[in-house]
Computed example of a mutant assay.
Amino acid sequence: MPTTPLVRDLLKEKQGELTASERKLSAALLEDSLVAGLQSITRLAELAEVSTPTVIRLARKLGFDGFPDLQAAIREEIAARMKRPLAKLDTARADPRDHVVSRFASAVSENINRTLDRLDLAEFDRVAELLSDPDRNLHLLGGRITRSNAHYFFNHLQIIRPQVTLMDSSPSVWPQSLLDMGPASTLIVFDIRRYERELEKLARLAVDQGANIVLFTDAWGSPIEKCATHVFRAMVEVPSSWDSTLAINFIVETLVAEVQSRRSDSSAERIAALENMIGASRIFRG
């Protein structure tokens, strides 16, 4: 798990202190998820159309002694973001003395605590208000691993309020959903490493339609951040060959509680109507 500020975050935090040339270099790094920073200082400067001294000045403004230290941090960040399941499994087996249940519980607990430490409560309230607005239509979608998170969120939101849609997992039918998106639409996307290009493309098309994006991602940040209006980052690493989405679901369940609280009267009526409908329909009985 990242224990020091990520280069991507430092670049965003320092924007107000950068010169025009440094902002140009920063944009070049962020555009390609920092991959451009793996090149030589000369090649990076050429790519961003700035001078090599500009590269050195930016590195120092970010808190590094020079470009080699910045590049080392970029390399470490990219390696952590792209860590493959087998490599994660080797790490998980490093200490066989503790039972996996204890190690997993400890990791999940730390993930939730560190996610909470980084959670912007004002941002949380803004998203809760957005999701509580009955005039907005909500579309939810997750990736290969996070599809269950999207489905869970959908199951609760569609009981609490109307105009909630769980998008099909097949990209071939996404255009139909995009047709119904506009300025009154919110696309809620779940995307953790290894990030899915199809989801990024969908998010960009949704923004082109006028929709805004609420993104749930990991500590390193999905490329969808570049077009998202609201972003929640959660810690995901556990002693397993797979990442854990329990910290993400912690935020999801808290949002469900807050949205229901904000729509207490209307959601109570909706839930009561649902119960009556189920009771009147024998096909739902065992």
Rank of each mutant, 00 (worst) to 15 (best):
L11A: 07
L138S: 06
R81A: 11
I56Q: 11
I192S: 10
E76F: 01
L18G: 05
R75I: 02
T19H: 04
G37D: 06
A20M: 03
A105K: 09
E225F: 08
I160S: 00
T254W: 14
A206H: 04
L29S: 06
W220H: 10
A20S: 13
H139Y: 15
L30S: 09
F232E: 00
S240G: 06
S240I: 04
T146R: 02
I78P: 00
E46L: 11
V231H: 07
E269S: 14
P183V: 07
S261E: 12
L34E: 04
I159F: 01
G63L: 01
I278Q: 09
D9S: 11
Q260I: 05
L215M: 03
V55K: 04
N149P: 04
S40T: 15
E129S: 12
R193D: 05
E22W: 08
R57F: 10
D243N: 14
A45E: 06
P68K: 06
P223H: 03
I271G: 10
P175M: 06
Q71V: 10
N113V: 12
A45Y: 09
P162H: 13
D243R: 11
L141K: 05
I112R: 02
P175Y: 06
V55F: 08
M1L: 07
A228N: 02
S106A: 10
A203R: 00
L11V: 01
R263Q: 12
R147I: 06
R60F: 01
E200V: 11
